[in-house]
Nucleic acid binder design. Structure first.
Lengths: 336, 336
DNA sequence: CTGAAAGCGCTAACAG
DNA sequence: CTGTTAGCGCTTTCAG
């Protein structure tokens, strides 16, 4: 492959001029530029990225580490981030931590090795709990998961508020014994739990919760098991909330199995709008996240942080959208 | 950050020795190795990837270009490829062409610029039609989509056979007027169509097909529209096959809207097993692909090709698995 | 077994 | 406006 020297020779100029043209920098004569451009074309020259990066100490690359690429939430995020990044002449390295803290660490190390300009990260609890920007040699923007105390640029859903509204909706529809099923692998589960508790407390209702044990791979199956057991119990709740898409899926599987109809026998609601939520029986009531927006906002935040390393921290909190569907239809015979 | 010189100084050896230890090469004295290792630890030294790549002319990186990251098929592929790659000390750059030939070209160029060791690609028709290995400066392994005539390493489902078996299954269940809805954006659609035609012809049945117009972003919506129109027609088919997951989704949406029950009023079958296929009414009959295996096999093929550039081309054809579910239940009152 | 030295291809002063 | 030159951090002969 041709290198910058070949181009310079072909164009009859110095390699410095070629470099200038490449960088689109001003201060190059019209004719010189023309000749360089022609030579580049003639030789089908492409600058060597490794050399550029080594010399310039810039990679123009951002890293994106998602918790689970199989979650549609994150695939959509990745699309948004890529779109934004390429518009800004940046590359992106996408990594899937698979909800595995060890992999997450591995990829964070990789980012350091690759000397990325910055990273967008949906952190596991273990990382989030002791998150310090100063621990990372690059700017980090957190997405999806972030505590209130964490000091970092971040873009998140208003989890507590969304859960609150979702719970209130169920209450208004006449449900009283509402159970919240959530996982503690992520900060989102906890925050949503808070919103639920707040809503129940406000109305003087008793809370009922089930926790999906922490670092479980098969969230769906565990949710399934929990609900199955529930059904065998004495007092079945009259509504169920799943704190994320996978838990919701597990719940539905279990309900199908024991032939429990919703909302007739038990109401249902959850988080994340997937293609299948509308097709499920009368449709599932969910909080939909502005996913693409989250990805876009995160990328913007990161690019700005890269440009201005010392600007104050910023946090973008986006509202969730309550999509009311059949699974939370007004309870027949409700006294409310 | 510390560089190799710092390490050499700290260890009291030459940079050459450090380099040798780093590469794990033999021919380094025991004490020298110890001292280098200690220095590396002490300084928390990490070799500069850009410099390594520039000097060694190797990137140890493979590219993965998928057609649509939102398709669970490809997210699962990406997991398999990453797992395999990291086990072999390779990095992977994941790109999402989004079913857009222009993006695909862009990413293929990117791969060249990044000087990747090889690429795993699910090609668009436009690339596949004139695919020549010699057009690419790196080894390429095709996945998911590949014509019989294409000369390239490839890992694909036995599409024609799978469609054949799926169609025969419907026929055996008593269905006769079976319509096949497919897209022509990908080779898979065409191959599956062939299998369908073959099965129908064998049984002396007439084929009915609808084509989802080529480069449509919203496959789901188009499938939806097609089915809606169908319903208004004179003679509704008694079974529908969707040639991929998105089309299947569109079909189901449309049937729901017009309140057509399956399999009672119309049977249903398709490709790709998603989480929601089991939860849909009586469950959807589908051909499930051995997705993880496909990703693994592709990575193996690529790594071997990289190691032995001139070995003969190889093609791995994996069988699909027919998962019979309620949507293709035996037709009541069938004469078969 | 170890070290010195020559670049890989490019950018960015610096000089003219 | 253009060219010369000194490295970026590392691998890899080639001597010793």
């Amino acid at each position: 492959m041709a290198n910058i020297k070949d181009v310079a020779k072909q164009a009859g100029v110095s390699i410095a001029s070629v470099s200038r043209v490449l960088a689109g920098r001003a201060g190059v004569g019209k004719t010189t530029r023309q000749r360089v451009l022609k030579a580049i074309q003639a030789l089908d020259y492409r600058p060597d990225l490794a050399a550029q990066r080594l010399r310039s100490r810039r990679t123009d690359t951002i890293g994106l580490i998602v918790s689970d690429i199989r979650n549609p939430f994150f695939t959509e995020i990745s699309r948004a981030v890529e779109d934004m990044a390429y518009q800004n002449r940046m590359r992106v390295i996408l990594c899937n931590a698979d909800e595995d803290p060890e992999k997450e660490r591995l990829y964070l190390d990789l980012m350091r090795d690759e000397k990325v300009s910055g990273v967008i990260l949906s952190p596991s609890l273990s990382i989030l709990a002791r998150f310090q920007i100063s621990d990372y040699p690059f700017p980090v923007v957190l997405i999806d998961r972030c505590d209130r105390e964490t000091i970092a640029d971040a873009v998140v859903l208003d989890n507590t508020d969304s859960a609150y509204r979702l719970t209130v909706h169920l209450i208004e529809q006449g449900y009283r014994r509402i159970m919240f099923i959530y996982d503690m692998t992520s900060a989102t589960g906890q925050q949503r739990h808070e919103g639920y508790v707040m809503a129940m407390a406000t109305r003087g209702l008793e809370t009922q919760v089930k926790v999906v044990p922490t670092p479980v791979r098969a969230t769906v199956d565990v949710a399934h098991a929990i609900v199955s057991e529930l059904v065998r119990g004495q007092l079945l709740p009259d509504a169920l909330i799943g704190s994320n898409g996978l838990i919701l899926l597990g719940i539905i599987q279990a309900l199908r199995e024991v032939r429990l109809q919703f909302p007739e026998q038990i109401a249902l609601a959850g988080f994340d709008d997937s293609p299948w939520t509308q097709l499920q029986g009368p449709g599932i009531t969910v909080i939909a996240q502005p996913v693409y927006d989250i990805g876009q906002a995160a990328t913007e935040l990161l690019l700005q942080r890269i440009a201005h390393p010392s600007q104050p921290m910023r946090r973008v909190v986006l509202p969730g959208e309550l999509r009311k569907r059949g699974s939370s239809a007004r309870r027949t015979g409700a006294t409310d």
